[in-house]
Design a protein around this nucleic acid. Sequence first.
RNA 1: GGCUGAGUGGCAGAGUGGUCAUGCGGCGGACUGCAAAUCCGUUCACGCCGGUUCAAUUCCGACCUCAGCCUCCA
Length: 454
Amino acid sequence: MKIFNSLTKKKETFIPRVHKKIDLYVCGMTVYDDIHIGHARTFINFDAIIKFLRFAGWEVNYIRNITDIDDKIIEAAREAKISALDLSRKYINEMHKDFDSLGMMRPNKEPKVSDHINEIIEMIKTLENKGYAYSKEDSDVYFDVIKFKEYGKLSNRTLNQIESAERIDIDLNKNHEADFVLWKKDTLGITWPSPWGQGRPGWHIECSAMSMKYLGEEFDIHGGGLDLKFPHHENEIAQSRCATNKNFASYWMHTGPLRIFEKKMSKSLKNFLTVKDVLKNFHPEVLRLFFLLTHYRSPISYSEEGLRKAKIILDKLYNLFENEKVIDRFSKDKTFIDNFFSSMEDDFNTPKAIQLIQNYAQSINQKGEINIEKLSNLKMILNSLGLLEDHPNNYFKYGSIDFLVDEIENFINERAEARKNKNFKLADKIRDDLLEKGILLEDLDGKTIWKKIS
RNA sequence: GGCUGAGUGGCAGAGUGGUCAUGCGGCGGACUGCAAAUCCGUUCACGCCGGUUCAAUUCCGACCUCAGCCUCCA
């Protein structure tokens, strides 16, 4: 299996630390608002990758943190006039709802910063003892980047480059522009006592402390959105390696950004759509397929048109299973499965994998007869990416409709009667009227079914 | 300004030194009372300029354009 390692900027053969086991840490959410589909992109990518890996026989220990202490959370809480932890609790709940409705697996552990203050303090103490941390008078505690020779390796920049970049505000307490806060001294908001006084952890340190607690000082893969590469991941590497003299994560994986109108979708640009917005009109698997149709490292431009196209593809796949039962075992067509595996094992080439799936689906349709074994293969492969988990019946009726189900059934019966009497004018009118309301009727094997269109 | 990635047919998006991506859409058929679904056929391509090569969309160099990071960001 090959994985593109951001650290070496090369596609490398993946060598696990322990045979057939993968320890994986993905940087999760900072919870102060509803998640948007840019966030969803990253976590759906990893969800599909992990589902595939497990399907392929890997034992994946998946850790994804929740950052529940942070300036933005504290600020949002102040505005909402509730405590920071109450606010983050609320949005953790919303996040779980959204992730669940997107069909994502829960990680094996989902550690929160507020539960790991001791580990964080211990780590800062270690760094301080080893001479990597400093503070001046009443300043925050900083990491001394000059002391870490490899600083900048991941994000491919030198300390000189960082220093020469334009800055809005310069912190005079820092030795170097790139030095970052390990412990933020503060008495407002939510704080904890520490050897450096009352305060809270800086950003970055939590991921080092928590990943090491659950996966050890060295583990296989560390992932996250591309926008975390610098400074977040760079800083994680610096503090972790300095604290332990170990390598920390072996492989770094970064997902590409989601764009909208040629710009990255982000909170600060206010150009985002929430998961809840999109799921009003589109089945969660449509969004998932939309993402998987592009390689995980490439940017994706969001558009409704794109979602509709993904839906057309998914519709075709669900159509195959409309009336069929599926036996749960592999059978023939080793070629299809082998090809699927080679695509996925080549840095998780989901677009290619889906192409194979589409071809395979077509080959089933070509025969014009039910092939349970092929359908089983297809379903199993789709499931390994988190697709086709719904019943076709639910899938095709997803979204809000203007009618009660019984009403639609009545229209269908009325139309059937009209057709029997060769009153096609009335029959077609009923069908057209429903179509206008987003209900599509299909005559299949003498039976009429309905689908919601979007 | 520095660093990184990308530019493929109407659209989305893989891949490759010389044969086809694929899907959607369009067009023409089959099927259907008509549709839908499905099938068959068909159309449309590799940013620009040089170089290497018997051969380049694929390798090399310049250029143009776009995006990301350099500040919080999945």
